[in-house]
Design a protein around this nucleic acid. Structure first.
Lengths: 336, 336
DNA sequence: TAACGGAAGGAGAACGTTTTCATAGGGAGT
DNA sequence: ACTCCCTATGAAAACGTTCTCCTTCCGTTA
C-alpha cells in the first residue's frame, strides 16, 4: 500500500504547472510532445490517479446512479443490476446501492443520502407506491424512475411488467383447458405487485362467468415453504380444486411438492402455473408452466430511461411496459 | 425537481456565516439557540443537503467501500452484499459495485476507477487469484480483502470457505456408506474454487485406497442444463457409478433429473451430494444432500475485516475461514 | 523591422465543504 | 474600573481538481 498522490505533486516532479498536468490527463489543450512524455512518465512512476471527488466538485457532475431496492435477494435484483450496469458503465456512470429491506423509513434515508452524494438519478423499487412517494420524489433535485410499480398518474416515470394482464392470461389459459376450480396463492397483502396479479386472476374468472370464494385466495410470503404449507392446508381442508395460479415460482414449487407428497399427480390431478420464471421453474419435476419476463431488460430499460432524462434534462413523464411470455411446460394439462 | 442549494445560500438566507451553518449541521461548536432555530428553519424550507463531495474532499474521507465481483448472478453475491451492507451501513459507509463478468481486464479497470473514487477499501472476488493480482493489490493506496480465494501467502488478507475439506468430507460420507464408484462434476477448469473441491474429492478417494479414472472427473459450467447433459452422457456411455459429488447444486439438480429421466431412482440407485446449498437443494425431489455455508456471513466477515483495517490503519495479513455443514437430505443413502 | 498570430503553458478563480484562528461582547472576580 | 475568560460568530485557508484568462515565445508576413 502506498500513499495517495495529487496533481500538485505530479506537477512538481515534472517541473510544470498543474494546469499542464490536467491538460495531459484529459487530453485537451495543446501540450508539447516532450513535456507530455515527461508528465506521462511521472504519472506512471507515481501511479497517480486524479481524485474524482475534486474533479466532480469542479465539474458538478458525479456520474453516479443510485438504486434503492426493498430486497437484494432472489433472482430479480441481481438480474436487474446486471442490466443496469451494462447500460450505465458504458456511459461512464457508477452504481450506488441502497437496500431498504422493505422498511419505509429507510427509503427516505437513502433518498437523503443519495441527494447528499449528488447522484444524478435514482432507480427506485418499492413494494407499494404511494402518494407520499410521489411527494418525496417531486421534491428531489434529480430524476427518478420507478421500477416494477406503474405509478398510475402522468407524473413519475416508470418501467414495469403488465402483471394484471399476464395473470389474466395465465388464468384464461387454464380456463380454456376446461378448469373450473381455481386457487390463487399470492404474496403478502402489502405487495402491490401481488395485488395486481390477484386482480388479473379474478377478472379472468368473473368475466368467464365464474364466482370465487374468498377461501381460494391465499396470501403467503413467497417462500417455498409457505407454498408447501398453504397447499397442504388446502388438501387437508378438502377444498376441491384442479388449477392453481401462484404469484411466484418458489411457492409454486412448494405447491407441487405438497401435492405430490399428498399422493396427487401433477398435472393429471392439478394444473399449476407460476407467475414468475426463475431457474427453479425449469428444474422442478414436472417442470413448471410459468410466465416469463426479463429482469435484466427491466434494469436495462430503466437505466436507459433514466440516462435519457439525465442527459437531456427533460424529466417529463414517460413509461415503458415490458413484454412477457407464457412458457408452457409440464405442470399444466387439459381438465378431464 | 428543484435546484440544488448550497451552504452559502443557506447562510445568506439565515443572515449568518457558512461556518455557523456548518456548526449547526454537524452539531459541533457553540451556537446560540435562537440562531440555531433560524438556521434549522432555513434548512427545512430549502431542503438543503450538504454536498458530500465537498465534505469528503475537505475531510479526506469518502466512506466508500468497493466490491469487485466476477458475477452478480446466482445466490452467492446477493447474499454477500446483504451481509456487507448490513455491516458497513451501520458505520456510515456506502457500497460501490464493480462487475467484471469474469473478464480480467475489467478487474484492473475497476481497481483504477475505485482508486480514482478514493474508496477506502475493496472486497475483491475473482475466479482465480494470481501473482499479478498480488502485485496490483500491493500497489493500491487502500486495503483489499479477497473473498472466496485463499491467497496462500501471508500478504493479502482473505475470507473463504475450506472447499478442499468439505469436498473431502462429502466424499468420505459416501465412502462410509459403502460407495465405491464415484463421479465428480466440477465447474470450469479455470475456476480455482472448483479445483480445490476436486482435489478434496480426489484425496478422500485415494487415501481410502481407491484409484480414479480420468473419465470420472467432468468439468461443466455450473448450469442446471450442463449437469443434466453431462449425466445423460455418462449413462449413455455405460459408466458404472453409484455416487456423485457435484460442485454446485444447480448441476446436481440437473443430474438428479437426468438420472430420473433415464429410469434410475435416487437415492436407491445413485447417491448425490451437492457442494453448495441454495433454495434449489431443498426444493428438489428427492431433496439434495448438500454442503451448506453462508454467503451472508462471508460478506459480513469480509466487511468486518476490511473495516478493521481501514479504521485501525493496520493492514497486516489476516484471514478467516468460515464454517460449513453437511445437510443430510434425501439424495443419499447406503450402498447395497 | 515591425506587426501579427498561434502554440505552449502558467496563475488563479471556482466548486462546497470543514476547520482553525481571530475577535467582539459580556459577565465575574478583584 | 480592569483584567480574565467564556460564548458566539466570522474570515479565510485547505481539500484537489477544471477551466478561463493571461503571458511568453517564436515564426511568418508585409
Amino acid at each position: 500500500m502506498r500513499e495517495d498522490i495529487n496533481i500538485t505533486e505530479v506537477a512538481r516532479k515534472a517541473g510544470v504547472s498543474i494546469a499542464t498536468v490536467s491538460r495531459v490527463f484529459n487530453n485537451n489543450g495543446p501540450v508539447k510532445e516532450s513535456t507530455r512524455k515527461k508528465i506521462e512518465q511521472v504519472i506512471k512512476e507515481t501511479g497517480y490517479r486524479p481524485n474524482i471527488l475534486a474533479r466532480e466538485l469542479a465539474e458538478k457532475k458525479t456520474h453516479l446512479i443510485g438504486v434503492i431496492t426493498h430486497s437484494i435477494l432472489g433472482e430479480g435484483l441481481p438480474n436487474s443490476i446486471k442490466g443496469i450496469t451494462h447500460v450505465i458503465e458504458e456511459k461512464g456512470y457508477n452504481l450506488l446501492i441502497g437496500n431498504t429491506d422493505g422498511q419505509i423509513e429507510k427509503e427516505q434515508k437513502h433518498f437523503e443520502i443519495f441527494q447528499s452524494k449528488r447522484v444524478e438519478g435514482v432507480l427506485f423499487m418499492t413494494r407499494h407506491f404511494t402518494q407520499e412517494h410521489r411527494d418525496v420524489i417531486e421534491a428531489l433535485p434529480f430524476p427518478v424512475v420507478v421500477l416494477l410499480q406503474p405509478t398510475e398518474d402522468e407524473k413519475i416515470s416508470y418501467v414495469a411488467f403488465d402483471e394484471y394482464r399476464f395473470a389474466q392470461e395465465a388464468t384464461r389459459y387454464l380456463l380454456d383447458k376446461g378448469h373450473e376450480d381455481f386457487v390463487f396463492i399470492g404474496g403478502p397483502e402489502t405487495s402491490a405487485n401481488s395485488l395486481r396479479r390477484e386482480q388479473g386472476f379474478k377478472n379472468a374468472l368473473t368475466s368467464a362467468g365464474y364466482s370465487l370464494d374468498k377461501e381460494r385466495i391465499i396470501h403467503e410470503d413467497y417462500s417455498i415453504e409457505a407454498g408447501y404449507e398453504a397447499t397442504k392446508r388446502l388438501v387437508k381442508e378438502g377444498v376441491p380444486f384442479t388449477a392453481m395460479i401462484i404469484a411466484n415460482d418458489g411457492m409454486a414449487i412448494g405447491a407441487i411438492n405438497a401435492l405430490q407428497d399428498s399422493g396427487y399427480s401433477i398435472p393429471r390431478d392439478v394444473s399449476i402455473i407460476g407467475l414468475d420464471d426463475t431457474a427453479l421453474a425449469k428444474a422442478s419435476r414436472p417442470s413448471l408452466t410459468a410466465i416469463h419476463y426479463s429482469y435484466q431488460d427491466l434494469g436495462k430499460e430503466g437505466a436507459n430511461l433514466l440516462l435519457d432524462k439525465i442527459e437531456s434534462g427533460n424529466v417529463d413523464f414517460s413509461y415503458k411496459v415490458l413484454p412477457y411470455e407464457l412458457k408452457k411446460r409440464g405442470s399444466t394439462e387439459e381438465r378431464y
